[in-house]
Amino acid sequence: MSASYISKSTIKADQMPWSQEKQQLLIQGEILVKTQNLNHSAQLHSLWGGSVTAWMYLPLVRSHVWQQITDYPRWVQYFPDITKSEVLTKGDVKRLYQAAQKAFFLFTAQVEIYLNVVEVLGQQIQFQMEKGTFEDFYAKLEFQDYGEGTLLAYTVQAIPNIPIPSIFIQQAMNFELPANMRKMRQVLCRE
């Protein structure tokens, strides 16, 4: 697909929320992470759960990144814990089913989620939980041209259905989301 189908959404270095040093780390492959407090979120008001945004630079044109990331069954390649990712219905609002398995100290957690997916062509994907093994879940991917490649911002807000204090959820998300994004970049850049 040609890049012409995607509207221009370019971020310039002086518009970045980071210092020049952090921008250089981003270009060199670092994943930048920011944790937000859910208690200030109108969507997710709880003492349990977490919210994290991670930014990643991809040395690929945005149209290519978009095309690959919106191939939702491929998410099992991007995120090692996802065991199934299936598009149930297509249209303006897609329905997506995902299942994942995560090993913890003494047990393995299995989760499944049905998501409503809204895409703004080449710019943004929003995932809103319809039902699943979370109290609440929301995610958003944002795509912008940056230098010769693409800046991808991935925000995840989640409240598990078991009471786990926010600090533990956010610590796990701070570790897991960057690791998952590194794997995603590795798969995307191999092609």
Results as ranks from 00 to 15, higher is better:
Gln170Lys: 04
Gln144Glu: 14
Gln186Ala: 15
Glu119Val: 01
Leu177Met: 11
Gln157Arg: 13
Thr150Arg: 01
Pro80Ile: 02
Ala109Asn: 14
Glu176Arg: 10
Lys90Thr: 09
Pro163Glu: 09
Pro163Ile: 09
Gln20Met: 14
Ile82Ser: 03
Ala172Trp: 13
Gly132Met: 01
Gln67Met: 03
Arg182Cys: 04
Gly50Met: 02
Met173Lys: 01
Val93Trp: 06
Trp55Tyr: 14
Pro17Gly: 00
Leu44Gly: 00
Ile27Trp: 06
Phe104Cys: 13
Leu152Arg: 12
Glu112Arg: 13
Phe79Ala: 05
Gln23Met: 09
Ile125Glu: 04
Thr108Ala: 08
Ala13Asn: 13
Ala13Ile: 14
Tyr154Ala: 08
Lys8Tyr: 13
Val120Trp: 10
Ala179Thr: 11
Pro59Asp: 06
Gln28Trp: 05
Gly49Glu: 05
Ile125Lys: 02
Val52Trp: 00
Ser63His: 12
Glu130Asn: 12
Leu115Asn: 04
Ala99Val: 12
Gly149Lys: 07
Leu121Asn: 11
Ala13Asp: 15
Gly49Gln: 02
Lys12Trp: 12
Ile159Glu: 03
Ala3Tyr: 08
Phe137Glu: 00
Gly29Pro: 11
Gln28Asp: 13
Ile6Arg: 15
Phe168Cys: 05
Gln101Ala: 10
Gln28Met: 10
Gln123His: 06
Glu119Ile: 06
Ser51Thr: 09
Tyr78Gln: 01
Leu106Tyr: 08
Val61Asn: 12
Lys140Asn: 15
Phe168Asp: 09
Lys102Leu: 14
Phe143Ser: 07
Met184Cys: 11
Val61Thr: 07
Gln28Tyr: 02
Ala139Phe: 06
Lys140Ala: 09
Thr53Met: 06
Gln67Ser: 05
